[in-house]
Computed example of a mutant assay.
Amino acid sequence: MPVYAVTYTYTDDSAGRDKHRPAHKEYLAGLGDRGVNLCSGPFGSQEDPGALLLIRADSKDEAVRFTEDDPFRRHGLVGAVAAREWLPMLGRLAAEI
């Protein structure tokens, strides 16, 4: 099954992210338990606010749909979502996929 690099661009509402972070993490962990979210996390503090999620899905549209119930998205804390198919070739993660 293909893997998609899904990127979030966060809004400026850092207080909202703080408030909803536990539910956001729980939601993404649930996707992980289902084998959908392979790995995810925020960009570093010196980068524009956002995150990267590696999502296993049948299509780009499905990968984005998996994020629609993320509390960060439901509460308007993600200003933009983009997805690109990613082809892991080398390294430990590539060997596990």
Rank of each mutant, 00 (worst) to 15 (best):
A29H: 04
G16Y: 07
S40F: 04
K60A: 13
A83T: 04
D58Q: 11
T9L: 11
T9S: 13
G35A: 02
A51Q: 02
L31P: 05
V64A: 04
H20V: 11
L28E: 00
E47L: 01
L77W: 02
Y10W: 09
R74C: 06
D61A: 15
E85Y: 13
R17Y: 02
D13N: 15
L53V: 12
H75Q: 13
L87W: 09
Y8G: 05
R74V: 12
L38I: 10
R74S: 07
V78K: 03
I97D: 00
I97S: 02
A51D: 01
H24K: 03
E47K: 06
G30C: 09
T7M: 14
P49S: 14
E85L: 13
C39P: 00
A51Y: 00
A80S: 12
P22V: 12
V36T: 09
A94P: 06
D12H: 14
E68K: 11
Y8E: 04
G50A: 08
L52Y: 04
A80Y: 06
H75A: 06
G41E: 03
G76H: 12
Y10Q: 02
A83F: 01
Y27N: 00
D48M: 13
L38R: 05
A15N: 13
G16R: 07
R65W: 03
S45C: 02
A95S: 15
